[in-house]
């Protein structure tokens, strides 16, 4: 009896030993910093000198900062328009879900913007939009329009950046849907065809419900992509013109690194984190429910 309890204690320790290195690193570089950031957000701090506790001072300042509201509003725009990647990705996947010669190559060509760094996507689209030498100007020139300086316009620049972001994102959702379409149950489709379903009614009533797992993942990665948007804003406009394209992620970086306002930056990061937490909680809840059930 003594022996087995010693053995079982050792046995109980085994999984923890396996997890130890991963847990330690993850705790030090991911989990603890979240709480540290929230803590820092209650201080006035330039990153070098002493921290001065100001309670909710940074948050109160945020409420009166027009730049914060611009950033938040742009994040809302990102969320809304980035979601287009989900239906468009489904559309492309349906279009490509055929067996014709060379379709595999076509699928991978469609996918490969996703593999390219967002910095490069930003460069490509900056050039595409460039008012003096860009491709877009040539295209709209054919229809007799004047050059459109999209990234220099306060009202259009954010949409221009989101459009650039949609390019790799559609590639991503497309590949998720192609995999989903591959795993459809042929029996159900046949049965529905027997019942006279075809075209749109088939898509709505039979296909889309079966694609729910793919849709779920597509929505999750798109929301996260929209809230994480930083690279494209940084490379395409640097938040300009006049701060009109800034998003919370970029605003936070700007305030902390360039203005040395770590406390204020941490407060912005906390707001962004809380927004994301809604989705993280939803995702975890679904995932764990699937795990138990």
């Amino acid at each position: 009896m003594q022996e087995t309890s010693g053995q079982s204690r050792w046995h109980a320790l085994t999984p923890w030993l396996f997890m130890l290195p991963a847990m330690l690193l993850f705790a030090v570089y991911v989990i603890i910093p979240i709480f540290q950031s929230i803590w820092i957000s209650f201080f006035d701090w330039d990153g070098i000198g002493d921290k001065v506790f100001i309670g909710f001072g940074n948050y109160a300042e945020l409420m009166d900062d027009p730049q914060f509201w611009t950033a938040l509003w742009n994040n809302v725009l990102w969320l809304l328009f980035f979601m287009l990647a989900v239906p468009i990705g489904l559309g492309v996947a349906l279009f490509l879900n055929q067996q014709v010669l060379g379709i595999r190559a076509v699928k991978s060509l469609f996918f490969f913007p996703f593999v390219i760094s967002q910095v490069i996507v930003g460069v490509v689209f900056s050039w595409f939009y460039d008012p003096s030498s860009g491709l877009l100007q040539d295209i709209i020139g054919i229809f007799g329009f004047e050059p459109l300086p999209i990234l220099a316009s306060e009202s259009m620049a954010t949409y221009g950046i989101i459009a650039a972001g949609l390019w790799p994102q559609i590639a991503y959702t497309m590949i998720l849907y192609l995999t989903g379409l591959n795993n459809l149950s042929p029996d159900q489709i046949e049965a529905a065809r027997m019942d006279g379903a075809h075209g749109w009614s088939m898509l709505w009533k039979v296909i889309i419900p079966q694609l729910r797992p793919a849709t779920f993942i597509a929505v999750v990665v798109t929301v996260i992509g929209a809230l994480r948007s930083f690279d494209l804003v940084a490379t395409m406009t640097g938040g300009g013109p006049y701060g009109s394209t800034t998003v919370l992620a970029f605003f936070m970086y700007e305030q902390s690194i360039f203005s040395y306002r770590m406390g204020y930056g941490a407060a912005i990061a906390t707001v962004l984190f809380l927004l994301m937490l809604v989705y993280i909680a939803f995702f975890l809840w679904r995932m764990l429910r699937a795990e138990r059930g």
Partner: peptide, 29 residues
């Protein structure tokens, strides 16, 4: 073992956080 689901959830959740919430402490460290 006890806490298995909780630890798994932390690994998944942590993976989705915005980088900015980690930036200042990670840079300091």
């Amino acid at each position: 073992f006890r806490g298995r689901i909780a630890i798994f959830a932390v690994f998944i959740g942590g993976n989705f956080v915005p980088f900015q919430i980690l930036m200042i402490p990670v840079r300091d460290l």
